[in-house]
Design a binder for these strands. Structure first.
Lengths: 150, 150
DNA sequence: CAAAACAGAACCGATTTGGTTCTATTTTGC
DNA sequence: GCAAAATAGAACCAAATCGGTTCTGTTTTG
């Protein structure tokens, strides 16, 4: 099983929370409470996102965070990249190009690159909005989108 | 950076070697020599592949391994799954479904599933042959495919 | 029966990761 | 202007994971 780090997963959770509370300034404390994450951890992620530009931070008393753009305009790729670094799937691909550790068998690069491209595309094609406000199942009846967890 | 475990990477290297030496019975020792991997490690991987069915093993003196199918009929997905388990990208997706640790916010599942599907497709659509014998660059001139490392 | 090979489990050390804590720095309100 | 509330950012520690090795057993050949 290829694992996305738990931090990246939590990152999406945090950003989902921010999307739900759009335009309400959220402190790290509030986010932690809302998501169930430990406060220090939520804070760490929020800082990372502020740094990467997808959240805007206000410091000082009554400070907090807010989405910089609309959830439609933020991709899951950005979220994941903020906490994990570039989305790619092998050593080969971004280590000092030239010596592949084991052998000179990097014709395989082409193959890996195809996979990496597919993966990156998938991440880029998925917006925060799609995560936070999933389309209602086809015949959900009146009321539309399914009740969300909390 | 999302990392494919090094073992999975080595696994592809080993299988590539097997594709190159198709029909020649290969001992763990030979594979290790050919790939540059430590013998114990190569052996471990070969066992895993034999177990999963993409290699056939012969025990006893003059034993060894051989591809069960043609390189065209073995997907990179099979190789990676043999060493890593199912190809999927989150906790959420295959842990005891129901409690998501943090909160009941698994409407996000839909999003992750899309990404997982894309990833799995990419892996399944890539054959061992494509890895081991990459298509020659468009105008490689006569002689065709580029000389392979070793 | 001995040697050559695979099968499979157990094991250890090092790296990575999750998560916390501590020290600034900035802003607000009294 | 000072205290309180918040973020910024680095440093740090414990625990889980992973890469790799070793050991014991089994099968086959000559």
């Amino acid at each position: 099983m290829i694992r996305l780090s738990r931090m990246a997963d939590y990152g999406v959770v945090v950003m989902t929370h921010m999307a739900w509370r759009r335009h309400e300034n959220q402190t790290a404390h509030q986010v932690a409470a809302g998501t169930g994450l430990p406060e220090a951890t939520a804070g760490k992620l929020l800082k990372v996102f502020a740094r990467s530009g997808i959240l805007t931070s206000h410091r000082g008393a009554h400070g907090g965070y807010e989405l910089t753009r609309t959830p439609e305009d933020i991709s899951v790729a950005e979220i994941v990249e903020a906490v994990e670094g570039p989305i790619a799937l092998t050593l080969c691909v971004d280590e000092h190009p030239g010596h592949c550790g084991v052998e000179a068998l990097c014709p395989m690069r082409g193959g890996w690159n195809r996979i990496n491209a597919a993966l990156r595309e998938a991440f880029e094609g998925l917006s925060l909005a799609a995560m936070a406000f999933p389309a209602p199942p086809e015949f959900a009846g009146p009321g539309g989108r399914p009740a969300v967890g909390l």
